[in-house]
Nucleic acid binder design. Structure first.
Length: 501
RNA sequence: GGGGCGUUAGUGAAGCGGUUAUCACGUCACCCUUUCAAGGUGAAGGCCACGGGUUCGAAUCCCGUACGCCCUACCA
C-alpha cells in the first residue's frame, strides 16, 4: 500500500510512562522496530510524559529494561540522545508552544476559557440532543475581539483548541486498512495545549513526529479515531503527514463471561516483566507476540529475530483483533528451550536453580558439569525456566521427598524388596559407572526375574528419585552417580520394601 | 447515543475471483517406549457471521443486517 516514501525510514516507539510495559505496547514497539530494521532505517524511542497526573517514575526504567531483555535496540532515545533530541516531551515544551502559537496566528486554533463544568454540561446536553459534534460547542471559537481581550487581561487560565474545519471530510491512507474517512462535522475542537502549559498527545505527537522526521507511525487501532485530527494539524502546520499503520488490538478472554475484551490484568500476565519472571525466553515471547496480529504469509511461524526482520512488512499486519493464547506461548517457549545448546540452557536455568537453593551461588566446575548433565536430561520436558527446580530437585537434594502414591504403587508391593536387592547388588559390582553399565545391570535383573521391564524399572525409579515421572531410568541413575543411587536404593529398601516379601 | 474498525474450526494465522478452504497451538487416538515429555502418523473440529447482489464462478468484489471491539477527557 502506501509503504513507500522517498525519505529514509524512521519509526518510533512513544510510550507514556504511566505504568509497566504491557504486552500490547511492546508488540507495537516490536512492529516499529522490525519495520525500521527491515528497511535499514532508524528506530527512535521517545518518552511522552505530558500527563503529569499519571506519571510513574518507575515506568521509564521498566521500559528500558523490557527493551534490553527483548533485545530491541533504538538509535535515538532519552538515555542515549541523538540528533533530534531531547527525546522526552516535558523537555520540549517550547516546540509545542511554538506550534500552538503558529496555529492560533493562522486561525487554526484558539484559546478557550470555558470551565470544565461548562464543558461537561455542554457535552452531556449535546449528546442527549444528538447535536454534532457531540463534544465541545466551540463557544470560545466565536468570541468577539472584546470578549477575547477581556479574558486575556483577566489572566484566567485557558486551553488552546484546534479549530476543526466546519465542513468537508478528512481521510488518510492506512497501511493496514486502506482509506479511512471522517466527516469533519463529527469532530469537535480538541484541546492541543492544556491549561498547565503542557501539550496533549494530539499536538505533541504530531509536532514531534514531524520534528523527528518520522516517516511511519505504527500504533494500535485505538488511535484511528484521532488520526483525522492529526492529519488536519499536519495540514494546518504545512507539514507532510507520515504513513499511518494501525494494527489491531490484542484481546483477552474474560474467564467469567467468556467475552473477548482488550487484554488486561485479569487475563493473567500482561506486563513484559512478568513473562521474564515466569521463565519465558525473550526470543520466544518476541516470536509469539509478533504473530499476534502479523503473519509473513504462508505457514511460517517459528522465526528468529533476524528472520522476523527479514520477513516483516506492513502488508502482513492484521486488521482484526487477536486473542492472546497462553498455551501456544507455552508451546513456543518449549520449542525455543529445546533449541538451546547445553551451555545456553545452563546459563539460562542456573539462576532459577540457585534461587531455589538447589545449587550454590558459586558452583565449582564439577557442580556445573553435573548441572549440565541434569539439564540435558530434562531439556525436552521444560516449557518454562521456572519449572526447572521442580523437575530436577531430586538430582540435588540429599533428602528425597518420596511421592506417597508412587511409593504405595511400586515399593509397597511384594516383589519390590527382591527387585531392589538385585538391582543394588548388581550396581555394587559394577566397576565402570557409565550409562551402558547401568543399563546392562538393570536389564540383567529384568531378564533373571523373567518379568516385563516396567516391573523392575518403575520400583527402581521411585526408589532412586522418589517419583514416577522423569527422564529415562538409565540416564537418571547414571547422572545421579553410584554413591547417591546406592544410598537411595538401600534407604528405600529398608524403609518401604523391607516387610514386603 | 454518535463515529470508526472488524467478523476464516476453541485459539493464532494462510488465502487477494476457480483449492476436496491450508498451517500451527489445543483436544482425541495410535506408533515409539521404562514413566513423563519430545518425536512420528492420523482423527475430530468450518454451511469462511447472516442476507442480498456483481460474476460462468465469491471466503475473496459491492450493499445491507447482526454481533464484537475501539474512540467519544485539559489520558495516552
Amino acid at each position: 500500500m502506501s509503504e513507500a516514501t522517498n525519505r529514509p525510514v524512521r519509526t518510533r516507539f512513544a510510550p507514556s510512562p504511566t505504568g509497566l510495559p504491557h504486552i500490547g505496547n511492546i508488540r507495537t514497539a516490536l512492529y516499529s522496530w522490525l519495520f525500521a530494521r527491515h528497511h535499514g532505517g532508524q528506530f527512535v524511542f521517545r518518552l511522552e510524559d505530558t500527563d503529569r497526573e499519571r506519571y510513574d517514575s518507575q515506568a521509564e526504567e521498566a521500559l528500558y529494561s523490557a527493551f534490553r531483555w527483548l533485545g530491541l535496540d533504538y538509535d535515538e532515545g532519552p538515555n542515549i540522545g541523538g540528533p533530534y533530541g531531547p527525546y522526552v516531551q516535558s523537555e520540549r515544551l517550547h516546540h509545542y508552544r511554538e506550534a500552538a502559537d503558529r496555529l492560533i496566528a493562522s486561525g487554526h486554533a484558539y484559546k478557550c476559557w470555558c470551565s470544565r463544568e461548562r464543558i461537561a454540561e455542554v457535552r452531556e446536553a449535546r449528546q442527549k440532543a444528538n447535536i454534532h459534534p457531540h463534544g465541545y460547542d466551540r463557544h470560545c471559537r466565536g468570541l468577539s475581539e472584546d470578549e477575547r481581550r477581556r479574558h486575556e487581561e483577566s489572566g484566567a487560565p485557558y486551553v488552546v483548541r484546534f479549530a476543526i474545519p466546519l465542513e468537508g471530510e478528512t481521510s488518510f491512507e492506512d497501511a493496514v486498512r486502506g482509506r479511512v474517512t471522517y466527516q469533519n462535522r463529527e469532530l469537535d475542537d480538541h484541546v492541543i495545549l492544556k491549561s498547565d502549559g503542557f501539550p496533549t498527545y494530539q499536538l505533541a505527537n504530531v509536532v514531534d513526529d514531524h520534528l523527528m522526521a518520522i516517516t511511519h507511525v505504527i500504533r494500535s487501532e485505538e488511535w484511528i479515531p484521532s488520526t483525522p485530527r492529526h492529519v488536519l494539524e499536519y495540514q494546518a502546520l504545512g507539514w507532510e503527514p507520515p504513513v499511518f499503520a494501525h494494527p489491531s488490538l490484542i484481546m483477552g478472554r474474560d474467564p467469567k463471561s467468556g467475552k473477548v475484551v482488550k487484554l488486561s490484568k485479569r487475563h493473567g500476565a500482561v506486563f513484559v516483566g512478568e513473562y521474564a519472571d515466569q521463565g519465558f525466553l525473550p526470543e520466544a515471547l518476541l516470536n509469539f507476540i509478533a504473530l499476534l496480529g502479523w503473519a509473513p504469509g504462508g505457514d511460517r511461524e517459528l522465526m528468529s529475530r533476524e528472520e522476523l526482520v527479514e520477513l516483516f512488512s506492513l502488508g502482513g499486519l492484521s486488521s482484526s483483533p487477536s486473542v492472546f493464547d497462553y498455551d501456544k506461548l507455552l508451546w513456543m517457549n518449549g520449542v525455543y528451550l529445546r533449541q538451546l545448546s547445553r551451555e545456553e540452557l545452563v546459563e539460562r536455568v542456573l539462576p532459577y536453580l540457585q534461587q531455589a537453593g538447589l545449587v550454590g551461588q558459586e558452583p565449582t566446575d564439577e557442580e556445573l558439569a553435573y548441572v549440565t548433565q541434569v539439564l540435558a536430561l530434562e531439556q525436552e520436558r521444560l516449557k518454562t525456566l521456572t519449572e526447572a527446580p521442580a523437575l530436577t530437585d531430586f538430582f540435588f537434594q540429599e533428602e528425597l521427598a518420596y511421592d506417597e502414591a508412587a511409593v504405595n504403587k511400586w515399593l509397597r508391593r511384594p516383589s519390590a524388596a527382591g527387585v531392589l536387592d538385585e538391582v543394588i547388588s548388581g550396581l555394587e559390582t559394577l566397576t565402570d559407572w557409565n550409562l551402558e553399565g547401568v543399563e546392562r545391570v538393570v536389564r540383567g535383573v529384568i531378564e533373571s526375574r523373567g518379568v516385563k521391564p516396567g516391573e523392575v524399572i518403575h520400583p527402581t525409579r521411585v526408589a532412586a528419585t522418589g517419583r514416577t515421572v522423569g527422564p529415562g531410568l538409565f540416564e537418571a541413575l547414571w547422572v545421579l552417580g553410584r554413591e547417591r543411587v546406592l544410598r537411595r536404593l538401600r534407604h528405600a529398601r529398608e524403609t518401604y520394601a523391607s516387610t514386603g516379601e
